[in-house]
């Protein structure tokens, strides 16, 4: 899936992708005359094949959502390029853009904000079909189908209801259904099932796997839930402060994490047992943010293994064979 192991039919490829936001100035910036920036995404490469599910893990605020928005042309990159099915997306306009929109969809992270409060549920779900000019006669069938896919009852149960009249988990599934209703080739699913309990989640994830198998849906799953990623994604990327620090086949990556951050992540996964350990985590401190581009490894302040070299040199993403890549001097 990576440059090392390019899939036979790449659908989405990005190279050198960066996005920076202006950060509020601090007093010290005035003296050293810097224009502060937050490097939300900082030069990442990725490639997602047709029908491939890729997981994107990472700490809160590390740039996952921003990456997803870049891939869908919802925000313009500060540097780098993205191609969808072989076509660069930065210049898409008019009909080409609509065609792209029809094929690439987003499941929003925050379902409470993702639905127009003045639209009924029925209208929310039909909206993508209206926007992309799908013939009206087929709307109802498509909407019903999407509702069934996300394990929600048929449309008649939502008649005349507005988004605020649904529970969090119901909204989240409506958001997912809206993305599926266009039968896209690619979705960015930003925490698609975070509000669902396991019994429902299992059903939804099974459908997602099924859709991938039958319709060849490619997906980027952004999630903090390692079990989800393990369940649906063949490949996984781990991000830390705007950079990809590790990637590889999901099963291997979770079984034998190579980057200290990934290791901490895997160790912190809570288990559904009463007697779980309450020991302190191996990593210390809080997320620093991606202000400026510091020298050396970005994880070094919190890394339990950091050595002098980590402060000097930025570790590149190295290929370790068997599809695994890691950005750590010690791995």
């Amino acid at each position: 899936m990576t440059s090392a192991q390019t899939p036979t039919h790449p659908l989405v490829t990005a190279s050198g992708l960066s996005k920076r936001f202006a950060a509020p100035r601090r007093l010290s910036d005035l003296f050293n005359g810097q224009r502060p920036h937050i490097y939300a995404v900082d030069g990442i490469d990725l490639c997602i094949g047709k029908g491939e599910s890729v997981g994107l893990l990472g700490e809160s605020g590390c740039g996952k959502t921003t990456t997803g928005r870049l891939l869908l042309k919802l925000t313009e990159p500060s540097a780098g390029s993205i191609a969808f099915d072989g076509v660069a997306i930065d210049t898409l306009k008019g009909n080409d853009l609509t065609a792209f929109r029809k094929r690439a969809q987003l499941v929003f992270q925050n379902p409470f904000d993702a639905l127009n409060p003045r639209f009924t549920i029925e209208r929310v779900l039909a909206e993508p079909l209206v926007n992309t000019g799908v013939e009206r006669a087929s709307h109802r069938d498509k909407v019903e189908k999407a509702l069934a896919q996300v394990r929600l009852p048929p449309l008649s149960r939502f008649e005349g209801l507005f988004p605020h009249q649904l529970s969090g988990g119901q909204l989240q599934r409506i958001v997912l259904a809206r993305a599926l209703v266009l039968e896209p080739d690619f979705i960015v699913a930003d925490e698609p099932v975070s509000m669902l309990d396991v019994s429902v989640r299992a059903g939804v994830l099974n459908v997602m796997r099924e859709v991938r198998a039958t319709l060849g849906l490619a997906a980027l799953y952004i999630s903090h839930d390692l079990a989800l990623v393990r369940y649906v994604c063949s490949t996984t990327l781990v991000m830390y402060l705007g950079k990809i620090v590790e990637q590889g086949p999901t099963a291997d990556l979770l079984k034998m994490p190579l980057h200290p951050y990934t290791r901490a992540l895997v160790n912190a996964v809570p288990v559904p047992r009463v007697d779980q350990s309450h020991e302190a985590l191996p990593i210390i401190g809080n997320v620093s943010d991606a202000r400026g581009q510091p020298r050396g490894c970005r994880f070094r302040d919190r890394c339990p293994m950091a050595v002098a070299r980590c402060a000097e040199e930025e570790p590149p993403l190295r290929d370790l064979g068997q599809g695994r890549q890691v950005a750590c001097h010690l791995a």
């Binding site: 987003l106 929003f108 904000d113 993702a114 409060p117 993508p128 926007n131 809206r178």
Partner: peptide, 22 residues
């Protein structure tokens, strides 16, 4: 900035539609 406006955009709504409908 609200996500539902972005949602309209990603589902292919035109600028006019976003502006006047959403």
């Amino acid at each position: 900035e609200r996500a539902y406006v972005e949602a309209a955009r990603v589902t292919g709504a035109s600028d006019a539609r976003i502006l006047f409908v959403h």
